[in-house]
Write a protein that binds this DNA or RNA. Sequence first.
DNA 1: TCCATCTAGTTGAGATTTCTACTACACTGG
DNA 2: CCAGTGTAGTAGAAATCTCAACTAGATGGA
Lengths: 172, 172
Amino acid sequence: MSVSQSAEVRPDEVDAGAGPSGEPVRWLAPEQQESWRAYLLGVTRLTEALGRALDEDAGLSLSEYEILVRLSEAPEHAARMSELAASLVHSRSRLTHTVGRLEARGLVERRTCAADGRGVNAVMTPEGYALLVAAAPGHVRAVRENLVDVLTDEELTALGNAMARVAPGVTG
Amino acid sequence: MSVSQSAEVRPDEVDAGAGPSGEPVRWLAPEQQESWRAYLLGVTRLTEALGRALDEDAGLSLSEYEILVRLSEAPEHAARMSELAASLVHSRSRLTHTVGRLEARGLVERRTCAADGRGVNAVMTPEGYALLVAAAPGHVRAVRENLVDVLTDEELTALGNAMARVAPGVTG
DNA sequence: TCCATCTAGTTGAGATTTCTACTACACTGG
DNA sequence: CCAGTGTAGTAGAAATCTCAACTAGATGGA
């Protein structure tokens, strides 16, 4: 009767049965289940805390902040829309809308791309850079307080390594 | 001139300087930075992949799925709105809207709470349970493919432990 | 050259989430 | 009992995100 969080169902009706496609369902073992749930809860809480802090003290969402970060690292503080979308794992559409808002706030500008007539470069303005510089210390502090300083170096490294193994293989 | 992803700025202007509040900014060390970025990318990709898969094969979003999971585990398949909100780390408002949609689809019902006149119980319908049972195998498979089976048992445990340490301390 | 196809980006509508205010009930101290 | 305060949940508008077109320029082969 119980279906485990976001990962597992063990209703009697399904037990040991075959999936829709014929193979038996390989439910998660209890310890796997526990790890998975800890992951979900931790990620949700952490994301929510970082987003809230960033918004409160800089008026930026996490994704806006990330866009500014990428631009700050790019040559000329400029990057193609599609590069940004790919590196942030956002849809092109989402990026268009978000950059549009940043542009409306004067934090970013759009320039048509000389090399490729279809392309658009997002360029961070001095105001955008200034806001990023102002926002960063608080954000780093929040990342430390809620993650980095909570874990030992080994734990943080293990976390990073695990997620680094996950990312490239992701289906889709 | 470069501001690192979602966590770090090291523009010359800020270097070694004091934060707004006076204390010097403790930027992340390079390895910490790397772990943090791996975390961000991995989480984003994984979430997006799991959400897409779930939507494609069951027409549910991750948060709808989670609500159904919680209900499936609750006595009588019923739980208070506020319990659900707390355990999912959703705002009450968000939960109201999401449950409203699930209700409109006939997957959940609302019952006023006998014990507390202010309270509302969300109760999973048989249709809701059936949909969850149908959705779960695919979701578990996706969680395995993209996370659980990608890592060794030790890595998964380390990941879970790390996130378990993070969750309770989160600011806010 | 020219057409088919692919890539980059945008658009607008619809769906979801957030934010703020509001109602109703519960609890506490006087 | 009752005012004051806190808790549970909802409502609606504004903000954001998703999804399905759609435009325009690039690319490749006949």
